[in-house]
Structures are given as structure tokens and as C-alpha cells.
Nucleic acid binder design. Structure first.
Length: 585
RNA sequence: GCCGGGGUAGCUCAGUGGUAGAGCAAUGCUUUUGUAAAGCAUGGGUCGAAGGUUCAAAUCCUUUCCUCGGCUCCA
């Protein structure tokens, strides 16, 4: 039995081989097509093609798959051939993509290799399976997409065909079934079914309309964050949604972040901007009064909505919107405190995530890349990076390093969570900043009487409430735990004569701060249970003759079919306890 | 923004040039229900929008808006 590592490598080879097979079939069917690249990826493979003027769509997939099945019979092996640069170029003389690769590889001193199977030959560094004719059987083409050559939007857009391949039919079926299941958890679908949020073309793209039920979840989470942060000594504030352009010039946003900001608006002859970030506003709270080292760390927090221009094609449900709400805060501290403060933030985020049941997120350290624009000089960046690395080391964090993912004012640590389809989304973030305090001339008086510049930590544990909730909806498949459920209890009355009693229960539950609805429709109990079940309400309370007489309720949980009778007081006690336990860290 | 799908009733969808449909939901009536769908009836649509072709357009063409999957970008 192969270890998982070996089988992962085998699967990669299988899929890479399948990419060759795809290219071979496409080339047979569309001889004028130019091939680009075709690697294996996490759940399958893709191949990029330049189809020239020919248009293809997913309707062509069966045709291509059949051709693949036909060709693979002649593929007994992958034969490696060493090829000279000249010969390789000659082979691909009309294909500018391969020529570009060949020139690059040759320049780098790499030996060029071709792999041949059947009549198909391709420039390739290898990584294939033996006997493709026997092993390359269980594949499926999945989707069609545009992709820029070499990932650069200035380059030509190629046509990418995604597919996947497995060792057995059963594994392929399971994967396709899993994809199907994942679609059922899609937060966009559940958001509509559970009446959580919507978008309106009249309002505009990427602007969330929170419906009553979604708004409840959002408010519960906001309250939860405020309450937890208050325990940690944060001060919560409110700041405006617009501010003068000069403020953003001072912060550096206008110079480095302009393309993400909405055009200035004229207010009495002065230019104002809609805020894309709250930092400069919180800086004003810090500056309000001179600060001493005794005031530090000074933590300013706000559930703050910001507005950023995202390209229309990037918008996606709640996961990428144009107005989003950050659980934002800025910690102003001494340089000596920075590491400890960063660690506190880091631990808070971890604790928070595990309380929502997220355990397989990725921690990503974002540092500068050479290409992008940043504030400050190397020395300051190194200072900031040193602090973050120290904090990560003390926290014994496992993290990946991502070049180019730094904020323009400093390095950062991001928490990345996967959605139902396995796509990764940056949620929580914590950043160390030596730049903005200097730009705004922030200062505090230290114990030695000298005036010094504080350090800022920018942090948003959930990141964006919109995005986090989108992921949370998928995480729970819409079946929120009781403390988050928009409707915690649904009362189901059996017949008309029970409605009066049902209403007294509604009132008692509401008085106890519970979110409750009554279904007193002229319907059978089975129908009401089915509805409540589809609404994913955690508790159904059924009331009929028996309950009226005994002054009880009959509880049916969303998660189980059994029901049992209980005194209302006891139910209230239990559910309140359940909610309280879940809603504190 | 770019490439490729899609937009028909509140929802899920059928309808390829000849009088807009189904199921669910809604409303009314009957029934008064005991743990995942009672029965009957009724209402509901400028077929995303604007222009064009045609005797005739949901259907064909053009433009545009929104949306989905990718790419680029990012919380």
C-alpha cells in the first residue's frame, strides 16, 4: 500500500498525463489550436489553449472526452526524448507560447525534454504514469475558463479547460458527488433559501442588502465581537464613512491605493472620499489628547463599513463585495509592546476561529515583493518583519510565507479559510505598521519624559463580516448553532384551539430574549415540521391538547427525529444555557 | 476589466418564429389535523432592459444591465 505522499505524487502524474491526453484530443479536433501549458493542480488538471478564432463551449466536452478515450488506447507509454533548442523551436515554429518557454528554459541552462505518447509529443519536464492506455481511464472535463498567458492581464487571454482524473471510477464518482454536495452548501443559494441577504441591481453591484434573518446573524456576531473585545480592553468608537481627500493623501492611500477607491466627490469645493479603510479615522481618536506610555497599549475598535472598488468580474456573493464591514481595530503601543500585543491578537483570532469550528485554516505571512509599491524604506520594513517573525516564533505558529501579500504600510499575518468548493479566502488579518504613526506624527511621552513614536497594529479577526458570514453559512450548511440562528425556536400549533396557548409561549420566549416564530397555519403537523426543518430552525416546539393540559411543550430538535415533553420553564433554562455557553470565548 | 455560461411567476425550471406553462409558495374555502408535503379553487408575467429584423419575437440580430465559473486583483 502506497503512503499518502506517494499516492499524491502518483495522482499528480496521472493528472498531468491526462492533461497531455486532453491536449492531444484538442489538437486532433482543432488542428489550428496552439498549446500553452497543462499542469496538474490540487483537484485535477488544466490545459491552456489559444483557439484562435474558433469558439468552443462546454457543449464540446463530450466530443473531446470521446476523442481522449479513443486516443488513449494507442498510448502505451510516455517516452522521454532530449531535444536541442533548435529542434524544439522548429517543432513549435508557429507557437509563440512554447517558443517563449523554450527560450526561457534554454537561457536558464535547462535541458529540454519532450515526452511522446502515441502520436502526441509535447515539451515537458516529465512526471507521468506508465501504461496510460491502462491507467488513464477515469477522467472528466469540468469547466472552461479564460486565463491570461502566464497569469498577466496584459497578455493574451487563452482558453483554459479544467478537468480531473482519478485512479478508479469510484473515486471519480465520489469527487463529482462531493462537488454536487458542495453546491448545495453554496452561501449564495442558502442565502436566498434562508432569506439571509440579497443584491439588487437597482442598488448596485456588490452592495449587500441584509434581510432580517441575515441581519440577525450579523448583529449577533457584531455584539459578540464588541463584547469579547471590551473584555480585552478595546475602546469601541464610530467614525464617518467619508473624509477629506487630504486625509488619504497623508495616509498614503491616495498615492498607493487610488485604483481601489471611489472617485472624489465635491463638498463645498473640497474633495471628499468614501473610506476604503478606517485607520486614519482611528488615528484621530488617538491624537485627540496627548498620550503617555501609561495609556498604551491604546486599542481603538469599530465595526466599520468600508468601500472599495473591485473589478466587476471579481464580485462573488458575499465573498467579494464592494462595501464590506470590518471588525476593525488599531492598537497603538510602544515598540517594546508590539510583539506581545501582536501575540495577543494572534491568539484571539485562533480562539475565535476554533469557537466557530474552523480548524483547518492557513496562516499566511505576507511580506513585500520587489514589484509592488510600498511606503517606507528597507530598514523600517526589516524592523516590522522582525517583530512579526518574533511573534510567530513565540506563538509556535505554522505558517506559509507569501511574497507580495504585505499591506502597503507593513507586513501582515492573514488567516485564510476555504469555502465549500475549496477556494481559499483571506479572512482575519493582523498587521504591524511603523509607517502611519510617522506620517501622522503620532507621539506619546515615555517614562523617561521623552517624546516617542508609537507602533500601530492593524487587525480584523474576522476580516470582513460579509465574507466571514458567507463562509460561515457554507461551513454550517445554513444550520447555524442556536446562538447564531435567526430563528431559534419555531412553535408549531397542531389545531386552531391551541393557538392561544402557543401565543403565550411565544411571549414568554420573547420576554426571555429568544428569537421565536409561530406557525399557526391551517396545515398538518407534518407540513409544519417539514417547513421548520427546511428553515433549519434548531428547536421546534409542538403544542397540542396534551401540552395545553400539562402546561408543557413537546421539543423536536432539528438534528433528531425523537421528541420529548418538557415544562416550558425548563426548556427556557436549557436553551438559554446553551446559548450563553456558545456565545463567549 | 478579460474569457465562457446564464437571466421566463416569489422560488425551481419547461417552452427554438404563430394566443406565455408546470411544481412549490401565496390567497380563499373545506378539513382541525400528533412528528418531514391534506383536498379543491383563485390570483400572479411588458419572458432583465433598449433598439432592430419579421405579417408575427420569450425564441433571430445589435447594444446594455445583472449574475455564475475562471483569470487578473483582493478582506
Amino acid at each position: 500500500m502506497a503512503t499518502s505522499n506517494q499516492s499524491k505524487e502518483y495522482l499528480d502524474n496521472l493528472r498531468h498525463s491526462c492533461a497531455h491526453l486532453l491536449a492531444a484530443a484538442v489538437l486532433e479536433l482543432y488542428p489550428s489550436v496552439k498549446r500553452a501549458i497543462g499542469p496538474s493542480i490540487e483537484d485535477g488538471f488544466y490545459y491552456d489553449f489559444d483557439f484562435g478564432g474558433v469558439k468552443i463551449s462546454e457543449e464540446d466536452f463530450p466530443k473531446i472526452e470521446n476523442k481522449m478515450k479513443e486516443l488513449v488506447k494507442t498510448w502505451k507509454s510516455f517516452e522521454k526524448k532530449n531535444v536541442s533548442t533548435e529542434k524544439a523551436k522548429e517543432f513549435y515554429k508557429d507557437n509563440e507560447y512554447k517558443i517563449e518557454l523554450i527560450e526561457e528554459f534554454s537561457k536558464g541552462g535547462k535541458k529540454l525534454t519532450f515526452y511522446q505518447s502515441g502520436n502526441y509529443s509535447d515539451l515537458c519536464r516529465g512526471g507521468h504514469v506508465d501504461h496510460p492506455d491502462l491507467r488513464l481511464k477515469y477522467f472528466r472535463l469540468l469547466s472552461l475558463a479564460g486565463a491570461y498567458w502566464r497569469g498577466n492581464e496584459k497578455n493574451k487571454m487563452l482558453t483554459r479547460i479544467y478537468g480531473t482524473c482519478f485512479q478508479t471510477q469510484k473515486e471519480l464518482d465520489n469527487y463529482l458527488k462531493m462537488l454536487d454536495e458542495a453546491k448545495k452548501r453554496d452561501h449564495k443559494k442558502l442565502g436566498k433559501e434562508l432569506e439571509l441577504f440579497t443584491f439588487s441591481s437597482e442598488v448596485g453591484q456588490g452592495l449587500t442588502i441584509w434581510l432580517p434573518k441575515g441581519a440577525v446573524i450579523r448583529r449577533v456576531i457584531e455584539d459578540f465581537m464588541v463584547s469579547e473585545q471590551t473584555k480585552m480592553g478595546y475602546h469601541h468608537v464610530y467614525s464617518p464613512h467619508i473624509g477629506q481627500k487630504t486625509l488619504w493623501k497623508k495616509s498614503g492611500h491616495w498615492d498607493l491605493y487610488k485604483e481601489k477607491m471611489y472617485s472624489p466627490m465635491d463638498v463645498d469645493g473640497t474633495e471628499y472620499l468614501v473610506k476604503p479603510m478606517t485607520c486614519p479615522m482611528h488615528i484621530q481618536s488617538f491624537e485627540f489628547k496627548p498620550k503617555s506610555y501609561r495609556d498604551l497599549p491604546y486599542k481603538i475598535a469599530e465595526i466599520a463599513s468600508v468601500y472599495r472598488y473591485e473589478q466587476s468580474g471579481e464580485l462573488s456573493g458575499l465573498l467579494r463585495v464592494r462595501s464590506f464591514t470590518q471588525d476593525d481595530a488599531h492598537i497603538f503601543c510602544t515598540p517594546e509592546q508590539a510583539v506581545d500585543e501582536f501575540i495577543e491578537v494572534f491568539n484571539f483570532i485562533k480562539k475565535l476561529y476554533s469557537s466557530f469550528g474552523f480548524n483547518d485554516y492557513i496562516i499566511r505571512l505576507g511580506i513585500r515583493s520587489k514589484k509592488e509599491k510600498y511606503l517606507g524604506n528597507d530598514a523600517v520594513w526589516q524592523k516590522a518583519e522582525k517583530k512579526i517573525l518574533e511573534a510567530l516564533k513565540i506563538s509556535k505558529a505554522k505558517y506559509i510565507v507569501s511574497e507580495g501579500d504585505a499591506a502597503f504600510y507593513g507586513p501582515k499575518v492573514d488567516f485564510v479559510i476555504k469555502d465549500a468548493l475549496g477556494r481559499q479566502w483571506q479572512c482575519g488579518t493582523a498587521q504591524i505598521d511603523f509607517m502611519l504613526p510617522e506620517r501622522f506624527n503620532l507621539e506619546y511621552v515615555d517614562s523617561d519624559g521623552k517624546t516617542k513614536t508609537p507602533v500601530m497594529i492593524h487587525r480584523a479577526p474576522l476580516g470582513s463580516l460579509e465574507r466571514f458570514l458567507g463562509i460561515l453559512i457554507e461551513h454550517y450548511s445554513g444550520a447555524f448553532p442556536t446562538w447564531l440562528s435567526p430563528v431559534q425556536v419555531k412553535i408549531l400549533s397542531i389545531a386552531e384551539r391551541h393557538v392561544l396557548y402557543a401565543n403565550t409561549i411565544v411571549n414568554q420566549l420573547r420576554t426571555n430574549g429568544l428569537r421565536v416564530e409561530l406557525n399557526d397555519k391551517n396545515e398538518t403537523l407534518g407540513n409544519k415540521i417539514r417547513d421548520a426543518q427546511n428553515e433549519k430552525v434548531p428547536y421546534m416546539l409542538i403544542v397540542g391538547d396534551k401540552e395545553v393540559v400539562d402546561n408543557t411543550v413537546n421539543i423536536r430538535k432539528r438534528s433528531q427525529k425523537e421528541s420529548n415533553n418538557i415544562k416550558l420553564k425548563e426548556f427556557i433554562k436549557n436553551i438559554k444555557k446553551e446559548i450563553e455557553e456558545k456565545s463567549i470565548l
